[in-house]
C-alpha cells in the first residue's frame, strides 16, 4: 500500500511541477523581472541615498528579503491557483474518487509549491548577482529556511484554495494579508530602526522571522535569534498542516 501511495504522491507532484514549468513565462519570469525592478529602484537609485543598514550596503541588506518575498508569493500562488483551478474545473474529483489519503494530497500539492518557490528563489538569486556581490554565511540555513518557508506558504495557499468559491477569493488573502505582512516583515528595513512599541508589534509578524533567518544564512547577522525564528516557522507549519488535514478530512470546500 505504501508503494501505491508513493506512486500517487509522485503523480500529483509531477503534475504540479509540469503545470508551472509548462507556463514558465507566466510563473518564473515575472518574479525575476519584479525583483530586478526592486533592485534598480530601491537598491541602485534610492539605496545610494540611504547608505548603510545594519552595517552593510542597502542593496546587500534587501537582497535576502527580496528573494524570500519571491519564494513566499510563488509557493503560495502555485498551490492556491492550482488547487482552486482543479476545484473550479472539477478535475479535483479525479483525486477525490481515487484511493489517495488526504496526507498524500497535501504533500503532493505542497511539494509542487515548494518546487516552484525554490526554482523562483534560485532564479531571483542569480539575477541579484547582476546588482550585488554577496557571500553565503551558511548555505544550509539558507536552504532550510527557503524550504520551510515554501512549505508554510504552500500550506497557506492550500487553505485559501479550499475555502475559495471564486477567483476573487484567491486574490483577497495575497492582496490584503500577504503583501502587507511581507512589506512589514523587515525586507526593506531593520526593525531596530523602529520605536520600541512598533518593534514589539513587528514580532507578531511571522514573515519577520523568515526574512531574518534567511538573512542570517547570507550575512551571519539578524534581528532575530536563528533558533527562535526556526521554532516560529516550525510552529506555523505544524498549525497550517493540521488545519489542511482537518479541512480535507471533513470535506470542507470540496465535498457536498
Amino acid at each position: 500500500m505504501l508503494r501505491q501511495f508513493w506512486i500517487a504522491y509522485l503523480t500529483i507532484t509531477r503534475k504540479e511541477i509540469y503545470r508551472f514549468m509548462r507556463i514558465w513565462v507566466q510563473t518564473i519570469i515575472p518574479p525575476v523581472v519584479m525583483v530586478a525592478l526592486y533592485f534598480i529602484i530601491f537598491g541602485s537609485l534610492i539605496g545610494q541615498r540611504i547608505g548603510e543598514m545594519d552595517g552593510m550596503a542597502y542593496m546587500d541588506f534587501i537582497m535576502p528579503g527580496l528573494v524570500m518575498m519571491s519564494i513566499i508569493t510563488n509557493s503560495y500562488g502555485n498551490v492556491v491557483s492550482s488547487f482552486y483551478g482543479a476545484k473550479y474545473s472539477r478535475h479535483i474529483e479525479e483525486l477525490q474518487v481515487a484511493p489517495v489519503p488526504n496526507l498524500v494530497i497535501v504533500l503532493g500539492f505542497v511539494t509542487g509549491g515548494l518546487t516552484r518557490g525554490i526554482c523562483v528563489g534560485i532564479a531571483v538569486t542569480l539575477v541579484s548577482l547582476l546588482f550585488t556581490e554577496f557571500s553565503v554565511y551558511n548555505p544550509w540555513v539558507v536552504l532550510l529556511v527557503a524550504a520551510l518557508t515554501s512549505c508554510l506558504f504552500a500550506l497557506a495557499g492550500l487553505i485559501n484554495a479550499i475555502f475559495a468559491n471564486s477567483f476573487d477569493d484567491i486574490t483577497i488573502i495575497p492582496t490584503f494579508v500577504l503583501t502587507p505582512l511581507t512589506y512589514l516583515g523587515g525586507i526593506f528595513y531593520s526593525i531596530r530602526m523602529l520605536p520600541e512599541f512598533w518593534q514589539q508589534v513587528s514580532l507578531g509578524n511571522p514573515i519577520l522571522y523568515m526574512v531574518n533567518s534567511f538573512r542570517y544564512g547570507f550575512r551571519g547577522s539578524s534581528d532575530i535569534e536563528l533558533l527562535t525564528a526556526l521554532g516560529v516557522i516550525g510552529f506555523f507549519i505544524a498549525l497550517l498542516f493540521g488545519i489542511c488535514m482537518y479541512l480535507l478530512d471533513r470535506g470542507i470546500g470540496i465535498r457536498q
Binding site: 500517487a8 472539477r90 478535475h91
Partner: peptide, 23 residues
C-alpha cells in the same frame, strides 16, 4: 459531467489517473 483537466493531453489524463490509483 466532464471533470478532467481540459488542458492536459488525452493520454496524460489516463496515465495520471492510473498514478492516483497506484498503477
Amino acid at each position: 459531467e466532464f471533470n478532467f483537466n481540459n488542458f492536459e493531453p488525452v493520454e496524460e489524463i489516463l496515465i495520471n489517473q492510473g498514478g492516483f490509483y497506484g498503477v
